[in-house]
């Protein structure tokens, strides 16, 4: 794997955020259409066909790329919706399509060979065999790595494959293997794979009770907060549960990912691109995070001392704790 300059891939939930990310130094932004074809299908987010075309022009004028996420799984009898989304992405002049479903990948590979295909994290391809399969079948050029691999494993993987790898460095942290988690479906009937949502807000309630505020999802108690304590969003896998006579954040503490201290390590492991999660975030947040990572990546590229990303992002921590996740083996 040749050592090229790390690419900083940033979230754009809206056209305004796209411009903010580009101006803050994003090498690439990723976004999706305003429908169920992408994994951040939230009200008020995402792009129309025209907005995407305009966003692509803006990004290209400023030397940035646009990657379009069509990364949910197509619904039976409605595969055309996903195919048409891919067609529109290709026509917009975007630089890549990020997909997970065999049907979408196959359609793009057969009909739009000029556009790069990136394998979404939702495909959960974590071995040379799986990645090699997607490369051989669909000609994928990059794989977004599942958030279960340590730095050492990423390095070994990169030695065994000949497509680029993209690794998450900041934002929401899935504890479960993405694309293979049906927890939200079980609790709420809505899921990332089918609907592009996880633990959706319309199923959330905050109930004031004698013991404090109880956050529930679809009626299931996910966490409880004493008065005066900051109240968190009841994402299912970050909840507090009872098992084996113990009460704990069994799956994961309410933490978010910050691998800002591992940029040099990820580069040494052969990673091509660093990804910031958060298409649901506003442009103020995205600007600040992108600017901080831009500085940190540039510092690493110059061979300088790694910057303290936590300090650069002091205003964005929202009191939440952070973790380097699976990049450190002890996370398991």
């Amino acid at each position: 794997m040749t050592m090229t300059r790390l690419e900083l891939v940033c979230p754009a939930g809206t056209p305004a955020t796209l411009r903010a990310a580009v101006q803050a130094g994003a090498d690439a932004v990723y976004c999706g259409f305003r429908d169920e074809t992408n994994a951040r299908n939230f009200p008020g987010l995402n792009f129309s066909r025209d907005e995407l075309a305009e966003g692509v022009r803006f990004a290209h004028d400023h030397g940035s790329k646009v990657l379009v996420a069509i990364n949910t799984f197509a619904r039976v009898d409605d595969v055309d919706i996903w195919k048409k989304a891919a067609d529109a992405a290709a026509e917009s002049g975007a630089d890549a399509i990020i997909a997970a479903d065999f049907a979408v990948l196959d359609h793009v590979a057969k009909n739009h060979s000029q556009i790069r295909l990136h394998l979404s994290v939702q495909a959960a391809a974590a071995t040379p065999e799986a990645i090699g399969f997607y490369a051989a079948q669909f000609g994928i050029r990059r794989v977004v790595l599942p958030r279960v691999l340590s730095l050492q494993e990423i390095a070994a993987l990169n030695r065994a494959i000949d497509v680029e790898t993209e690794a998450f460095v900041f934002g929401g942290l899935c504890v479960m293997i993405e694309g293979r988690c049906y927890l939200s479906s079980y609790a709420t009937g809505k899921s990332p794979n089918l609907n592009g949502v996880c633990s959706p807000p319309q199923m959330v309630s905050y109930d004031e009770e004698p013991g404090g505020t109880t956050a529930r999802l679809s009626g299931f108690t996910i966490d409880r907060y004493e008065r005066g304590q900051p109240v968190g969003y009841p994402t299912l896998c970050k909840g507090k549960f009872k098992a084996d006579g113990r009460t704990s954040h069994l799956f994961e503490d309410p933490v978010s990912l910050n691998a800002g201290g591992m940029i040099a390590g990820l580069k040494a492991a052969g990673v091509t691109a660093l990804k910031i999660e958060g298409r649901q975030r506003g442009k103020g947040y995205v600007s600040e995070v992108v600017r901080a990572f831009r500085k940190a990546v540039d510092a690493v590229e110059k061979g300088g001392e790694p910057l303290d990303i936590g300090r650069l992002l002091a205003g964005q921590s929202e009191g939440a704790r952070q973790t380097a996740g699976a990049y450190e083996k002890k996370w398991r």
Binding site: V79, A100, F102, D106, E129, A130, G179, R180, N193
Partner: peptide, 28 residues
């Protein structure tokens, strides 16, 4: 999917951990 390269061309079952949600993916 790691198992597909070494099994392709021979009969197999896909279990509930393989994401098959539509007829196009099934046909693939």
């Amino acid at each position: 999917v790691s198992g597909l390269p070494s099994r392709s061309g021979k009969a197999f079952v896909t279990g509930p951990f393989i994401n098959v949600y539509n007829e196009a993916s099934a046909k693939f």
